[in-house]
Design a protein around this nucleic acid. Sequence first.
RNA 1: GGGGGCGUGGUGUAGUGGUCAACACGCCGGCCUGUCAAGCCGGAGAUCGCGGGUUCAAGUCCCGUCGCUCCCGCCA
Length: 590
Amino acid sequence: MFRTHTCNALHLDNVGEEVTLSGWVHRRRDHGGLVFIDLRDRWGLTQIVFDPDTNTDMHNLAQTLRNEYVIQVTGLVRARPEGQANPNLETGDIEIEGRSLNILNKANTPPFDINKETPVDEMIRLKYRYLDLRRERMQRNIVLRHEVVRYIRNFLSDVDFVEVETPILFKTTPEGARDYLVPSRVHAGQFYALPQSPQQLKQLLMVAGYDRYFQIARCFRDEDQRGDRQPEFTQLDVEMSFVDQTDILDITERLMIGLVETMSEAQIMHKPFPRLSYNDVMDRYGRDNPDIRFGMELSDISALVANSDFKVFSGTVSSGGLVKGIKAKGLGGYSRKQLDELTDYVKVFGAKGLAWLVVDESDEGPVAGRSSFAKFLSTDEVASIIDQLEGEPGDLLLFVADKPAVANESMGRLRLELGDRLGLRDDNILAFCWVIDFPFLMWNEDEKRWDPSHHLFTAPVDEDIPLLDSDPGQARGKQHDLVLNGNEIAGGSVRIHQRELQEKVFGLIGLELEHAKKQFGHMLEAFEFGTPPHGGIASGIDRLVMLLAGEPNIREVIAFPKSQSAADLMAGAPTEVTEQQLKELHIKLR
RNA sequence: GGGGGCGUGGUGUAGUGGUCAACACGCCGGCCUGUCAAGCCGGAGAUCGCGGGUUCAAGUCCCGUCGCUCCCGCCA
């Protein structure tokens, strides 16, 4: 038997027991006489004391111990001497008087500190991931991740969901992200694709009558990485039959609230979660994943400046653009340099510039002080702008005039930046909200056609179905996104379950029926065998755990993540393969 | 595909044209019987990511390249 207890288990009431512990040498303190060893396992630390008076040979052996040696110790639990307890340790009231020591395995000096949370270059952490995973931060995150997944499984199982595994080797779909392809040996020249999500399969499970399905599903997308995007990631995938959108939102909301209140100390800002329309959030926050922890909403001043002499504003409005502003409370003292920084910030998102105005005090109330543009406007126009943004002396007003997409995106991002600068984004607050009533279709200017704003199988809002013929851009879809502190953490929709409507949508997005049949024939055919109304949602587990753990990127909550260039720095993947392997797969490199 | 940041002993950093590349932690050795980031003393350890160039002289400047990272594009 390697151990009788783990390293976080012993307390004063175990005093007098002979115990055996196994683990890693976390730290050693060698006093020449006494040798103290902090023994570590996943559960915690226990101090072992080796005393030369107890057993000289064993004490000598203890002096040879080094960090990360794997050892087994048997000894007597005893209370620490008066005043020697360590309140920072769960086991800090006791120690083990070492009576026998067995070195199970020696260890090389690790390339970085395991026993300290010192920063280490990410390349080295990834190369020695198995050592990084030994560190407290990663152990905490990986265990949290397990607890999150366990909570989800229990919750959904308790309300009659069935977990079903779906294939990893599936079929390529040219829509959406780039696929990871797997060559077929048996079928020369043909390829499987790794699923970008189990979308089609979960809908087919509804056709099959499983009614309530979920899966902790691995998904694959061959796109460039971000801090919150890995080539393979994990989704909580959910699909339900005989539901409308409200049913999906309600159960997801119950799951999220239960999960977060169990796993996190942070406070949920709004219960129930606000349900906001796409148009509303775009107007107020400039993006479809708003951070509603703080106000500082955007203000559309297009109408106020449509006829002004300032061509940057009026010209933008007359060509269908927007002029949107934001009030940065108390930042009127910003220097030219700081204003230039903010200008550079919005330029990243396509804005051509940033107009600014500092509000000053006067006898008649707030007036324009320093400004990049006020001189081009009438006094009344300036006054109406200050009035609409509720500018007060000392405030800084900022504006972008551009196409709606650019004005919204750049100002929406600027709002987040200002929120950071003003310390308004408190990590101890979790502000969930639903975004619904998305446009059903988005005009694709490059291809001159409509694209589905969510995916091909999303249903339009019932009352908007006639609009599909008359004014498709105005139709809303039964899509829903769950947003947490400005991060999209789940998204889904009610699906189309009737073939006629599905074919109509294919037609709208310019997908030839013949082509559609080739790609999605199995779906279309399935829909004719008695498909229940259904819908669902999928949630990014990595992002969710990242937010719950307070980590800045999802690599910190994934045991073996890829680098930004999609490489595994530990194992060294991807690699070249042998000529023989290529030959079997009918592949010639070029 | 594009833009920014970083790359110096094992780790984290300092060094922005001129001694022998500095400091902390770690490592090795010695001393040390109540530490818990133990302490004190001593020591080893770096062709400054790689290649090229400018210069009397390059860790430092220039070009290229590789890697990590952040962002834009991309991500139905």
